[in-house]
Design a protein around this nucleic acid. Sequence first.
DNA 1: CCTCCAAAGTAAGTGGCGCTGACATAAGTA
DNA 2: TACTTATGTCAGCGCCACTTACTTTGGAGG
Lengths: 205, 205
Amino acid sequence: MAETKSARRGYHHGDLRADLIAVVRALIESDGPDHVSIAEAARRAGVSSAAPYKHFRDRTALMNAVAADAMDRLRADMRAAADAHPAGSLAQISALGVAYVAFAVAQPGVFRLMFGLTEGHEDAPELLEKGEATFGIVIAAVAAYLGVAPDDPRAGQRAYMLWAFVHGHSFLWIDKKAKVSKVGLNDAALIHAMSDAVLNRADPD
Amino acid sequence: MAETKSARRGYHHGDLRADLIAVVRALIESDGPDHVSIAEAARRAGVSSAAPYKHFRDRTALMNAVAADAMDRLRADMRAAADAHPAGSLAQISALGVAYVAFAVAQPGVFRLMFGLTEGHEDAPELLEKGEATFGIVIAAVAAYLGVAPDDPRAGQRAYMLWAFVHGHSFLWIDKKAKVSKVGLNDAALIHAMSDAVLNRADPD
DNA sequence: CCTCCAAAGTAAGTGGCGCTGACATAAGTA
DNA sequence: TACTTATGTCAGCGCCACTTACTTTGGAGG
């Protein structure tokens, strides 16, 4: 029998841990994070239903591993988006938002897993850490645009406002709560307009 | 034995349907929507685990009923917020946002249920309908502020931008993905600043 | 090169859940 | 008063998360 990913040579699998993460990622996208069962993942990896517990303490630990992996990919996407534009330009900031939404739309299941209520976020401080590193990219870009230091409160405020917007837009979109087509605009235009408004007009102080 | 809500007089419960909705609502807030089990709800209502299926086709149908009920309450909250301010004022629009976030923070479980990926949203078109009615309040307020007709695309666009923002802010908050305290602002100030920026600067066209 | 141990697998079992089908009871209508 | 139908119960199916006790095997140390 052929296995999903790495070939299983004999009694031992080879790299079950990595294989499980890949299999679960696929299951999450096809069935949603809530419908993923460890048993099914084990079946697809070609091992018994007890095997995963040799690598992950419980279901939550496995899911956290998938989420952490995904957060790395999101950060990489955003890093690339930032590097494709002049530092501190409005285009750069918009590109970060577009990359965020694109990730959510391309991988809604894993996006929900990352940003939904992660059960064991206390068991996974690394997740919060990775998340903050990602947000740091936005703060840096905003600070550069405003011409202030990255730790200036104004940069954090504006960056948060933009994050909340693209975050909400992403969820409304992937959860089908609003038909954006109805608004008659594409993501890029919306995000660009919002970035401009927040950076050049918003003054919460 | 005393039951959770209505007293059960004999073999029949009295109003199991309503009681189940109330019990499930409580369970959702204490354990989260995903951890609610029909069996536990039945236990708390003092009936057998099969009884709920006489009133709801399946778990999803019960959850949808709870969500629909909650959407009515959210709309009422927002209606009240709107009525407390002059029509078409910036204060009115901010108040709508504040009411939305307040609902999310006060009842995070049911908020997640309403706006998360509802499994059977196709089985519950009434939910989408109620949601659109609620959003309609925002559109009307925005249109009044801008001095345009409610069906003017500009009203819909601005209203959507504000919705996405408060929606994202709500989820980041209840899912503990960002410490808003770090930003150093309260909800009202943030929402007010955003409303002003979107309504007086944003121009996606 | 052999031995032995720890890592990584299996099988079988526990308890919970969603849901179903067959049956029991009660409430209301003819 | 008899019948119908809504609303309960009970027993059971299949699936799941997770555990325990046992098995296999790759590799490190003698």
